[in-house]
Amino acid sequence: MPADVPADVPERADAALGVGVVVSDRYELDVNGTMREVDGAWLGETLLFVLRERLGLSGAKNACEQGECGSCSVLLDGVVVCACLVLAVDAVGSRIETVEGLTASGEVADIQRAFVESGAVQCGFCTPGFVVAVHDVLRRRPAAGDLEVREALSGNLCRCTGYGRILEAVRRVQQWRASGARE
């Protein structure tokens, strides 16, 4: 990822355009309910880069940088997206939720516990992205069936598990939640 700043950036254009204007090297992002300042960034930095390299949130993983693998999945204004395909500065004014913010206390969420108990974690690289995607689908569709879950997770690649244990982990969370077990 290029980190140098192009020398020929235009001067700050007419601020009297009547539009929201952000300058790409200094802005604030709403991450997991906290305003985080970003200072000295280049315009082309993605949300994934800023989360990991500037804000110290390394849960979202950097793999393909082209939206193929889902390992950088985050929620942007409540919908799951690839953080590698969001310009960080374009997320100013949006609500960003990462895997680190799944529980208010920062403790392990039931989804993460189910992944561990089901053996759905092997190398672990894809796991945070899967956890965010599972969180997203179960929040929208708590009783989602197998096909719906597979569709919801179709943007997340795992090279280790063969997916069977990930699907088992999802069913485990659904059972826990249906039986009223506390998160």
């Binding site: 929201g20 300058v23 315009l43 004014g93």
Partner: peptide
């Protein structure tokens, strides 16, 4: 000022 401008217009006319 080294930062580049990012405009976040609210209407098409503002975007133009």
């Amino acid at each position: 000022m080294r930062g580049a401008l990012v405009a976040q217009p609210g209407t098409v006319d503002e975007a133009v």
